[in-house]
Structures are given as C-alpha cells and as structure tokens.
C-alpha cells in the first residue's frame, strides 16, 4: 500500500529532476558538432562570457537591492495597519496577473509617447529614452519582484513580538533605533529569504530582458535562451546552465535560513 503510493512520486523525481539535471551536465561537455570536449567550459571563462556573468550579477544585485529597499519600509508600514492581512493581500493581488501582461504594459508606459514621457513633457522635461534601456529593465525587475520579497519580509517582521518593540522603547530607543537595533536584526531571516527568492530568478530573467531592455542587457537567462533556441548550441547553453545552478547553490549557501519548518530542507 505504502509502496504503491511511493511509485508515482519517485518516478516523477527520477524523470523530471534527476535525469534532466544529469542531461544538462552531460550536454555541457558536447560542442555544436557533438564532439566530447571541454571547449564550452573554456569559452565560459573567456572575457566576453565573464563580462556577461558580471553584468548579469550586477543587474541582479541592483534589482535585489532596490526591491529590498522598497519592500522593507512597506512591510514595516503594513505591520502597523489595522487590517494588515487585507492590505498585504491587496498588494499581493497583482501577482495573479501573468508577468508577461504586466511587462507588456510597461512597454506602453515607457514608450516614446507613453505615460512617463507624457508626464515628463508636462513637467517640461526632455523626452526620455526609457524603453530598451537598462534603467527600465531594473524598474520592471523591481516591480515584478516586490511581492516575492515582501512576503518573507512581512512574515518575519510580523512575527516579532510587540513586547520586543515596547521593551526597546522602554529602554529609551527612538523609532529609528527600534528599527535598527531590534526589528532589523530580528527579521534578518526574512531578509535572507527575500534576497534568495529575488536574486536567483533575477539572474536568469530573459523575457523581461528581451521585451524591456532589448539588446541593452544580457543576462545568464537570455544567454541560455539564445543558445538553446536561436543558436541551437545546446552544449554551450547547458554549460551556462550548469554555472547558473552552481551560482544558485552558492547563493543558497549564503542565504541559508535557520528554518524550523519541517520539510523545508535546503540544498
């Protein structure tokens, strides 16, 4: 009986987790002519690929940092509201709309005659070339990731006992000191979790990159997509994928949380 239950799950794990990763690693050792070789790895360490990795990390860092900067005060504010769960829900609600649609909306908002430029014109500012720029890419990235960062932040800030805050005030701390010396250190696990859920996907964005940044930004994600679907060089694509997995594991190691939840293990 129990064995019978186990079969579908184990089969799924084998076919869709273990084998794909094995295949990805395996393919990384073949070049475009199906020769067994290390050339893909050599190429990954060439200047152009290193540059791409660095810029991908830089943009992921910017997106994560700005998302955190926006979400932390937001989480603090929501915590103080009376109907906090309702407001949190209202903020999370737009996530149920496909990311693609929201990204598409930004094409309109940032376009030459779009909303932003209309406002700029009314303020007497020169026309901005926002669409297909890296600024736009970072803005849309931050926009997309706000709910994902907000949830773990809010959960950890909200779970801080009110008496901790009262105690800090009682001992003479001002509002800013309470945040700096008590709330922030006590919510550090939430910050780590938030950084984790934003940084890794930000590293591998490709749809937003293509639609909003045009060719201005190349990320590990766009590189993989390009190798697989345009250049049809699966070997090189797999190699980048292997490195992306490696980076992901390193980031997870750094942002490892002391989670007490049963079942949520780590890599």
């Amino acid at each position: 009986m129990r064995r019978l239950l186990f079969i579908p799950y184990i089969v799924w794990m084998g076919i869709f987790v273990i084998i794909p990763i094995g295949l990805l690693v395996g393919f990384s050792f073949f070049d475009i002519e199906d020769n067994l070789t290390f050339s893909n790895y050599r190429e990954f360490f060439s200047w152009s690929y290193l540059q791409m990795s660095i810029s991908s990390f830089w943009y992921a860092f910017l997106i994560t940092a700005f998302t955190l900067l926006v979400c932390y005060p937001l989480a603090l504010i929501i915590k103080q509201l009376k109907l906090k769960m309702f407001w949190l829900f209202i903020i999370i609600l737009p996530t149920w709309i496909n990311i693609l649609l929201k990204t598409y909306a930004f094409i309109g908002i940032f376009s030459r005659e779009g909303l932003v430029n209309n406002l700029a014109a009314q303020l007497g500012l020169p026309e901005l070339q926002l669409l297909f720029s890296d600024v736009a890419f970072v803005i849309v990235g931050v926009y997309i990731f706000i709910p994902f960062m907000l949830l773990p932040l809010f959960n950890s800030i909200n779970s801080i006992d009110q008496s901790m805050i009262s105690a800090a005030q009682d001992l003479g701390a001002t509002r800013m000191q309470v945040i700096r010396k008590v709330i922030f250190p006590l919510s550090i696990e939430g910050v780590k979790a938030g950084v984790q859920v934003v940084f890794i996907p930000a590293l591998s964005l490709f749809m937003i990159t293509r639609l909003i940044a045009g060719n201005k930004v190349v990320t590990l994600g766009t590189a993989i997509e390009q190798q697989f679907l345009t250049a049809e060089n699966w070997g090189m694509g797999s190699t980048i994928g292997v490195f992306l997995i490696l980076f992901m594991m390193i980031i997870m190691l750094f942002t490892r949380t002391k989670s007490k939840t049963i079942g949520v293990g780590r890599l």
Binding site: V17, I21, L23, L24, I200, L220, G265, L267
Partner: peptide, 29 residues
C-alpha cells in the same frame, strides 16, 4: 526523507530557464 525533500526543493528553487532548457533536452532525448 531529508534527501528526497532536497530533490523536491531543487525544482522549486531552480530558475525557470534551467527547468525549461533541461526539459527541452529531456523531451528530445
């Protein structure tokens, strides 16, 4: 259990691009 859960979680944290690309290879294979 812990190792099975870890495998379970690989799928959750993996970037979409990796899942997409590796499934592409898998289906072709």
């Amino acid at each position: 259990r812990a190792s099975l859960l870890n495998i379970n979680n690989i799928m959750i944290v993996s970037p979409d691009v990796i899942i997409g690309a590796s499934f592409l290879i898998l289906f072709t294979f």
